[in-house]
Design a protein around this nucleic acid. Structure first.
Lengths: 298, 298
DNA sequence: GTATCAATGATAGAGCGAATCCATCTAAAG
DNA sequence: CTTTAGATGGATTCGCTCTATCATTGATAC
């Protein structure tokens, strides 16, 4: 009943003093406004203006309408601005899913410059998914998946953005620390520290221990890399993680880093997106920044 | 661009889950909504929903629209409610102008029950007018004028609502207090206390002193009745006011009340309104209540 | 005063465009 | 295979806006 045009009309008359002037402002004829006013007044059952000669004087109802106009119109105009930004991919929330515990450190290095380049885009990071990272991506819970395990599927695209080697971290003075590389059997007498995820998602099991049919003496878990490595430094066990991460910490803690197997375990981080999100500029930009970071860090 | 119907549409789809259900809610066909959605999405340049089979999933833009809808729609609906009340004369602000200082006491006795009967009507009392009370009425500064001096003019109507006698108040033990009535000459040796208005608007001058060519010994003013009568009680002067008001105070203060002249000064309070405000129910109601109060107090 | 002119709002009628409807199609889910 | 939901095309109708004109008012000059 009260439409946007009515609010604009009331406001324009208020600002320009007459129907005729308001008509010019709104790019219609005075006649159109006159008709519109009459219809609105009929609908509301009350005059909006008192006609006094060539003057219009606001009634109480008119005054009330002005108030509404001043509250509603800016809201709508602002909304249109924002929606335009969203449509141009300049604004929104980039929801990132993480399926790779240690990648968090790496992610932070991309997120921070990204937030600077895209001040109108928020970043949200999620780590728990009921139906896995790919499910979350397909269900639009997230817009970007950071994972070491690409799962090619129609509608999704994965791109490797970071190569790294999965290594074992042990205390600096450990007897094994002088070796060139480790063999699976070496872990038989060690306590293994990992992030708290199923063993079939831990590369050290799937690519190293399981093939050799070896189990560590003990398996403990820790949520955080920091604590995990503190424990390693204190001789409470060994941990597997990306080399770049291990080497970062080994500057602060007494740690040694060893290759897993003669050839080492090569890994990649992939970024997964929905293919039909192609027009979201900030998403492309994020992937691009991740790609470039890989290059610059080599 | 974003119209009310769009907000209602988005909200209805949100609440009912599908375009078809929303169409039923909005009393249009599914086809109409489908067309509307397409046009809106084209205009905004962004999808509002992602079509997934027969499901609609809100996009970020859609989510934003829902927020806007939840803020704007209630505002508009509430506004329509209020405007309907205003159009029925059930809501508004009754702006009362006072041209008669002592009438304030009388007015309060009407206003208080009025506010109870009309909980959605506010009352505003003004006492200063650049172009007089009648001017304020004509200029829509006020809706009701309380005055002892009706000024009949096209577009205005005045109705007497209260008869009273203007009397003189003196200290209880004053030598003149035993008289039946006063003559103008009696005031020659007295200090006269009045409200701070021009003497040609004071009945004691226009109807009593001036005709006899008499002036009081001294003339002082006071804004408030209370203070004025305290001064009278303390022998600092005498004051003219309505008999009913004087008698109310003479129960608390040692005061005498005397007629002015043998016949006394008869006065009336009038309520002035604009004739074309006839359809404002609460205005009529107020005048009616004032009329009844006169009767009940006799 | 009064005659005239400019400016504003109201109104009638015509025309056109947009919103809606109906019918039908396509796709997905059970 | 049926049911259900959304998309689409074309016809129709409704209503908005326009043009043209009138009425009223306020200003100005005589």
């Amino acid at each position: 009943m009260i439409e946007r045009i009515h609010l604009k009309l009331v406001k324009a008359v208020q600002e320009h003093g007459s129907l005729t002037a308001a008509a010019k402002e709104l790019f219609v004829t005075q006649s159109a406004l006159s008709h519109t006013v009459r219809k609105l007044e009929d609908n509301l059952g009350t005059k909006i203006w008192l006609r006094e000669g060539r003057n219009l004087r606001l009634t109480q109802a008119g005054n009330y309408l002005i108030n509404i106009a001043n509250r509603v119109l800016p809201l709508l105009e602002h909304a249109e601005d924002k929606l335009k930004q969203i449509s141009h991919g300049e604004r929104g929330t980039l929801r990132i899913g993480m399926e790779c515990h240690p990648c968090y450190q790496w992610l932070l290095k991309i997120v921070s410059p990204f937030l600077h380049s895209w001040p109108d885009v928020d970043v949200d990071v999620k780590q728990k998914f009921q139906f896995g990272g790919v499910g979350a991506l397909l269900d639009y819970e997230i817009d970007l998946l950071v994972t070491p395990d690409p799962f090619y599927k129609a509608g999704l695209s994965f791109e490797p953005v970071f190569d790294y080697e999965q290594v074992l971290v042990l205390p600096k003075d450990h007897t094994l620390a002088k070796r060139k590389y480790l063999q699976a059997a070496d872990l038989r007498d060690l306590t293994l520290l990992t992030y708290p995820v199923a063993t079939d998602r831990l590369d050290i099991y799937t690519q190293f221990l399981n093939p050799a049919g070896v189990n560590p003496k003990k398996h403990k878990t820790s949520e955080t890399t920091e604590i995990m490595l503190q424990m390693v430094a204190c001789n409470r066990g060994v941990a597997a993680m990306p080399r770049w991460l291990a080497e970062e910490y080994s500057q602060k803690l007494p740690l040694s880093v060893l290759r897993l197997g003669r050839a080492g375990i090569a890994k990649q981080i992939f970024l997964g997106t929905r293919t039909n999100d192609g027009e979201i500029q900030y998403l492309d930009a994020f992937v691009e920044m991740a790609r470039n970071y890989k290059l610059s860090s080599k």
